[in-house]
């Protein structure tokens, strides 16, 4: 028998790869067969060629967008976690503030972004603020839920042994919250990227040589559809990479005990 772990990993990689290969092949074939012009739908090979050819333009844009995303993600994680700790300190604080966290979540970022861009002088900072607003909610809500999801028996045990508040936090609440926190990170990382791209769109092309959204807008104006697709591809790849990184971190942190990271027994 093959090692089930290996088999599992192989399937995880192979199955989506087969789908992707089939879809790309069909796309390429259809475009060639019907001689679709590149300004409508470029063939995958054309997109790949543009990606390489325009790398001197697209590469720096990718860096700009990634920098905004990572900064926003970091801000969202730090502020979101602090807010969650604040919430579990007192029911009153949570009751008073939680609705505003929801408000932040349900208001579309495209509607807030122009205001933020007007209020915050530095455009780069403004973009980070917008993306962080989008990404912060899952961190707050998951971490709060996690910090509250303490096994009541263990809580009683800690009380019985007269654990200090700090001991309860470090030895009980934080480990209990960890699986929820990492779940929040996965969602937040994707949202930070979406937030960054949307904010770049709103900021537009005026004066600021920006990230991937700027390239998409420019390419659109110039009907440079292959480059538009190439930029789009980069956004997608960046999102996948972020997600994979979060999965990896969560695995590292939880693998030795949490059900979600255990390999299923067959």
């Amino acid at each position: 028998m093959t090692d089930p772990r290996r088999l599992d990993l192989a399937l995880r990689v192979a199955m989506p790869a087969v789908i992707a290969a089939a879809a790309l092949a069909a796309w390429e074939a259809l475009v060639r067969l019907y001689e679709v012009p590149a300004y409508l739908v470029p063939a995958p090979s054309e997109v790949a060629r543009t990606l390489v050819a325009d790398w001197s333009i697209l590469g720096p844009s990718l860096v700009v967008t990634l920098r905004t995303t990572l900064a926003a993600f970091a801000v969202a994680v730090v502020l979101g976690t602090l807010t969650a700790f604040l919430f579990v300190q007192s029911r009153w604080i949570e009751l008073a503030l939680f609705p505003y966290a929801v408000l932040l979540q349900v208001t579309p970022i495209v509607a807030i972004a122009p205001l933020v861009i007007i209020w915050v002088k530095d455009i780069q900072t403004a973009l980070v603020v917008c993306a962080a607003i989008v990404a912060i909610f899952p961190v707050i809500s998951n971490t709060t839920l996690g910090l509250r999801s303490v096994d009541p028996g263990l809580a009683a045990l800690f009380r019985m042994y007269r654990a200090s508040r700090l001991q309860q936090l470090v030895r009980l609440r934080i480990p209990s919250a960890a699986p929820y926190f990492f779940g929040g990170l996965r969602i937040a990382s994707g949202l930070a990227l979406i937030g960054a791209v949307v904010a770049e769109f709103v900021a537009g092309t005026g004066g600021h040589a920006g990230g991937l959204a700027y390239q998409i807008l420019q390419a659109g104006y110039q009907l440079n559809i292959p480059r538009l697709f190439a930029a789009l591809l980069l956004v997608t790849l960046a999102g996948i990479a972020l997600f994979a990184a979060m999965v990896g971190i969560s695995k590292l942190a939880l693998a030795h005990w949490h059900e979600s990271e255990l390999v299923a027994e067959r």
Binding site: G153, L154, A156, L157, R171, L172, P175, A178, W257
Partner: peptide, 10 residues
């Protein structure tokens, strides 16, 4: 306790 009540992460 009636249940083991152990810390799963430890």
């Amino acid at each position: 306790f009636q249940d083991p009540t152990l810390m799963p992460w430890a």
